Simulated scan of single mutants.
Amino acid sequence: MKKANPTILALDLEGTLISNAMSQIPRPGLHYFLNRCALLFPRMVMFTTVREDKFRQIARLLVEENVAPEWFLDIEYINWQGETKNLEFVPAALVSDIVLVDDFEKYLHPGQEAQWMQIDYFDYPYPDDDTGLFKVLQKLETLVVA
C-alpha cells in the first residue's frame, strides 16, 4: 500500500472482520476498529463475497450484540462480479483513492495490488487476544496521516 491520503476504505467481511458467514464470530476490537476507520475515511464500503441480504443479516446481529456501531447497518455495499475484487466496481471513485483491507490475496484484481492492505486471516480457534484489526488500524492511521 503506497498511495497516501486515500479517501475510501473497502472492507472484506469473512476472515477480516468476522470468522465467516456461518459462525459469524466478531474479530476482537471490531467496534473500535470500525468507529476509528469512520473517522479516518470519508467513505467506507463493504466489498465481500457474501451476498448483500446475508451481509445485512450479519450486520444486524453484530449491532444487536454491540460489537459493531449502529451505522454499520447502512454501510455502502459494493455489488460486483467476476473472479477478483476489481475496485472499479466502487461507484464514483478512482481506484487510486481506495484502500482494500482483505485477508485473501486471491481476490486482488491484477494491477491493483498497490491498493491492498493485507490483514492476517481470522481463523479457528478465533483467539480473544487476536490483534489483526489493531495492526491494520495502525497502518491505516499512518497511511492517512502521511
Rank of each mutant, 00 (worst) to 15 (best):
D129R: 06
L62V: 10
V144G: 00
V136K: 04
L17C: 12
A93D: 05
L137W: 01
P26I: 08
T131R: 14
L137S: 02
F47M: 08
M117V: 14
I8M: 05
G29D: 05
T49V: 09
L143V: 04
V90D: 02
F134G: 07
E76C: 00
P26C: 08
D103V: 03
W116C: 09
Y121R: 13
R36W: 00
D103H: 13
I98V: 01
A114D: 14
A10Q: 03
Y107M: 13
L11P: 04
W71C: 00
Q118I: 11
T84Q: 15
G82N: 08
V45A: 05
M117Y: 06
Q138C: 08
K85A: 07
L17E: 06
P28I: 06
M46G: 07
T7G: 10
P125H: 05
P6N: 07
N86S: 13
C37P: 03
L62Y: 04
S19C: 10
F72P: 12
K106W: 09
D129Y: 05
N79Q: 12
Y121E: 12
H31A: 06
V99I: 15
P28C: 06
P91K: 00
D53W: 08
C37Y: 00
P110H: 12
L87A: 03
E83V: 13
E70M: 01
K2V: 13
L61H: 05
A21I: 04
G15H: 08
I8R: 07
G132S: 14
R43L: 04
T142K: 15
